[in-house]
Amino acid sequence: MKTVYTLLLALFLFSFMYGQEKVSPDQYALSFGIGDNFTLKKFNASIAVKKIRDEKHEIRLFISPELSASRVEQEDEGELISEHKTQNSSLNIGTDYLWILLRNSSVNLFTGAGLFAGYGYNKLNIVSYLGGDETKSYQLTLETGPRAILGVE
Rank of each mutant, 00 (worst) to 15 (best):
V127I: 07
E58T: 14
D54N: 15
S137C: 07
E55I: 10
G78H: 10
A117D: 06
Y119P: 02
N125L: 09
R71S: 07
Q87R: 15
T3W: 09
V23K: 12
Y129P: 00
G33V: 04
D76S: 13
E21H: 03
Y121P: 11
K41I: 04
D96Q: 13
N108R: 15
G114E: 06
Y97W: 13
R71N: 08
S89R: 15
L13A: 12
D54A: 02
S128G: 04
F12Y: 08
Q20E: 05
F43M: 11
F38C: 04
I100A: 06
S90K: 05
L8N: 10
Y121D: 15
S15H: 03
T6V: 09
K85N: 14
A48W: 00
L150M: 03
E77T: 07
E143F: 06
L40P: 11
D26L: 05
N108L: 12
I81S: 04
D26W: 04
G112Q: 00
D76M: 10
Y138V: 05
F32L: 13
G131T: 11
Y28W: 13
Q20Y: 04
W99Q: 05
T86A: 12
Y119C: 09
S89I: 09
T39M: 06
I63N: 05
Y28L: 03
I93M: 15
K123T: 09
K85E: 12
L67P: 01
E134Y: 03
F12Q: 07
I34L: 14
I59N: 10
F62I: 07
N88E: 14
K56T: 07
T86R: 15
A45N: 09
M17R: 13
R71G: 04
F14R: 09
H57Q: 15
Y5M: 12
S105F: 01
L11W: 02
R147I: 02
S106D: 12
Y121F: 15
G35E: 03
K123E: 12
G35Q: 03
G114K: 00
E134K: 14
T3Q: 14
T141M: 06
Q139G: 10
L150E: 02
M1L: 10
F62E: 01
Y129M: 00
F32N: 05
G131F: 04
R71M: 02
L30M: 08
F12I: 07
M1A: 13
V49A: 08
P65I: 03
K41P: 02
G145W: 06
R71P: 00
A113H: 09
L40R: 14
G131L: 08
I81Y: 02
